[in-house]
């Protein structure tokens, strides 16, 4: 039990009588509520900060982003500089992560690759949330014929051979990172939409939704304030699990020609190029794969923490 100003109640008795001065009521403080009003997000952040693993995850991600930005300056190599005589060298003091098949420093290439792959991860997350969760939420909430139409659209997009779309995009728009984002944007929200829609279908019949309707919450508020926050669990899981898939999809897209042009390479590209020489030069696969795994681990810790932090039922 703590008291205002941190004064220990136990010391009151030993104080002289004139220790206190009568100040009377302070009008401007009469309406003050002790606990400041916190928004949903402030609250979530407060709780996230208390979660050790989640914060570790967050720091690792920040650290990786920092490496992506500053790392290349530290190694003394460029991502394109070839020394063909030094091709396929195992990790050493000169090249901590070894060299690739053209004698380029693998570590530097991984630092550069982080720029692409992390941005892919982030973009995929944003698409998942902004498009997938919202689309699915609306479909589930409105239901009926709208739901049928919206979900059949999802099925159609699922069904269209992505490779055809990608080839067409490539022919029409050429290569570049932006086009990868577009390609991801076309498809990387379908799974999320289905998951959220399924959850919302179930949730919207629950009592708290009825209660919210009763007090006059409109559809928009219902969706954003009640339904989606209550679906955070599956949303976060779907989100964190779809990031590595986006990272590897990027590798495939780059292979077909949609991504950034060689010699720039993402983690996914580095890993898939290394895999051909898995037996002779395992480090060329191991390091990019490890970078992806570590990032995913960090995203997962953060994701789990976020899930707990964003869970409205845990808001006390």
């Amino acid at each position: 039990m703590s008291i205002v100003n941190g004064v220990n109640p136990g010391v009151f008795g030993s104080l002289p009588d004139n220790a206190f001065e009568h100040v009377g009521p302070i009008p401007e403080e009469q309406n003050l509520i002790v606990r400041p009003p916190t928004t949903y997000w402030q609250d979530a952040w407060r709780r996230l900060k208390k979660n050790f693993l989640a914060m570790c995850g967050l720091y690792v991600i920040i650290f990786f982003i920092a490496l992506a930005i500053f790392g290349p300056m530290l190694t003394g190599y460029t991502y394109f500089g070839q020394v063909l005589q030094d091709a396929n060298k195992a990790p050493s003091l000169a090249h901590w992560f070894g060299t690739d098949h053209l004698g380029r420093d693998e570590l530097t290439r991984i630092f550069y690759g982080a720029r692409i792959s992390l941005s892919i991860g982030i973009v995929a997350s944003v698409i998942n949330l902004a498009v997938g969760a919202l689309y699915g939420g609306i479909s589930g909430l409105v239901g009926g014929r709208t739901d049928n139409v919206m979900m059949r659209i999802v099925d159609i997009i699922y069904g269209i051979p992505l490779q055809l779309v990608v080839i067409l995009l490539m022919v029409v728009m050429g290569s570049g990172l932006l086009n990868i984002y577009v390609a991801l944007g076309l498809v990387y929200w379908l799974g999320m939409a289905r998951i959220v829609r399924g959850q919302v279908l179930a949730l919207k019949e629950q009592e708290f939704v009825l209660a919210a309707r009763m007090v006059g919450a409109d559809q928009r508020r219902l969706l954003l304030r009640h339904l989606i926050p209550n679906t955070m669990g599956p949303i976060i899981v779907t989100l964190t699990l779809s990031i590595p898939q986006a990272i590897f999809t990027e590798a495939w897209l780059s292979f077909i020609g949609l991504g950034v042009a060689a010699p720039m390479a993402s983690w996914g590209v580095l890993a898939s190029e290394g895999v051909g020489g898995l037996r002779s030069y395992p480090w060329q696969t191991f390091f990019p794969a490890a970078a992806i795994s570590l990032t995913m681990l960090a995203f997962n810790f953060l994701g789990d923490g976020l899930r707990d932090a964003l869970d409205p039922r845990l808001r006390r």
Partner: peptide, 10 residues
């Protein structure tokens, strides 16, 4: 995490 981060082609 390893299951999702290390793709089948590896």
């Amino acid at each position: 995490i390893v299951g999702v981060s290390v793709p089948s082609f590896i």
